[in-house]
């Protein structure tokens, strides 16, 4: 006798109906979750762009802030401060990140390489405010004053893992034959790396650097007690003054990096909470600039990468 079929116990039609309904409902719900994520994105973006765009004017970029409670003024100090600190951060972080990435490329599976990857991931996970505390403890405390230099260093620590991770990815994409070919011709290792591998991976590395810069420009927390903020930070002024007193180039640079400085997000944070309408408006305008910068850099980097990838892999 044939064993009893399982379908003696199953009401197929009812079973199918139940499962189909569940299927439709749950799949639709995942669509809803996407909509729920897109909603705040659109809300924030549109609101900030509209509201900030309203307060956007030329003065924002060429003037220092007006005294509290008076209209007008700009955030030149913050723009210059951001520029100086991000520049310093890039100068510190990018070479270290690239060199470490070259190390990972040359010795991918050693214990040191594993430790570096782990360390990079952990570095990326440290809350930026804690990195700020570190900058305070190591630089501000020893120098006994807040400075753009300290701000640049902590931003470099924030940038480092971002650039390092993407640089490693990009260097790995370069066919190893290229490097080995150069070595086989008798080229020293560094020449093979800098003249052959680096150019081949350049575009990808640039996008990684762009992402790192986008991250650094938007960071506030680590600057709170390293760069501190400075409403009067103006490089032109520092240079003019320096020239007037016949200071050397080094002394002027020392002034630029040695003073406390402001940054766009730092200014935004401070102005957002002030009771003066003018300051809050400046904050919205700064938000507009920051948002455009961060999103623009991100979109450009990713679009470029996607475009290259399509070109490479058909």
């Amino acid at each position: 006798m044939a064993p009893e079929s399982i379908y003696a116990h199953v009401n197929l039609r009812r079973n199918y109906r139940r499962r189909k309904i569940l299927n439709t409902v749950m799949l639709s719900l995942t669509g809803v979750t996407v909509a729920l994520a897109v909603l705040p994105l659109v809300w924030i973006t549109v609101y900030v762009l509209l509201k900030g765009g309203r307060y956007l004017n030329l003065a924002l970029f060429i003037h220092l802030p007006a005294p509290m409670g008076t209209p007008g003024g700009g955030v030149l100090h913050a723009i210059e401060g951001s520029l100086v600190m991000v520049l310093l951060a890039s100068l510190l972080a990018i070479p270290v990140a690239l060199l470490a990435a070259f190390y990972l490329l040359a010795r991918p599976n050693t214990a040191v390489a594993q430790a570096v990857r782990f360390s990079t991931d952990m570095l990326a996970g440290i809350p930026s405010i804690v990195v700020g505390l570190f900058g305070y403890a190591v630089i501000v405390v020893t120098q006994k004053h807040y400075s753009a230099f300290a701000g640049g260093v902590v931003l470099a620590i924030i940038m480092l893992p971002v650039v390092l991770r993407s640089a490693e990815e990009m260097l790995k994409l370069v066919p190893p034959e290229m490097r080995e070919g150069a070595l086989a011709l008798g080229a020293p290792e560094w020449r093979a790396a800098l003249r052959v591998v680096l150019p081949a991976a350049m575009e990808g590395i640039v996008t990684g650097v762009m992402l790192g810069i986008a991250r650094a420009v938007g960071e506030t927390a680590p600057l709170l007690f390293t760069a501190l903020g400075n409403d009067h930070y103006e490089i032109g002024q520092i240079v003019r003054q320096g020239l007037h007193y016949h200071q050397s180039m080094g002394q002027i640079l020392g002034q630029i990096f040695g003073q406390p400085a402001d940054a766009l997000p730092l200014t935004l944070w401070k102005y957002a909470q002030q009771p003066y309408q003018e300051r809050v408006q400046l904050a919205w305008a700064v938000a507009f600039v920051l948002m455009l910068f961060a999103l623009g850099l991100n979109i450009a980097a990713r679009a470029w990468l996607a475009y290259r990838r399509r070109k490479l892999y058909g």
């Binding site: 994520a37 973006t45 420009v217 938007g218 506030t220 935004l268 920051l290 948002m291 990713r302």
Partner: peptide
């Protein structure tokens, strides 16, 4: 869009 959500600076979220 998901990446963008992560790219917006924290202070902008705060202001909004």
């Amino acid at each position: 869009m998901v990446e963008m959500l992560a790219a917006i600076p924290s202070v902008v979220y705060g202001l909004w």
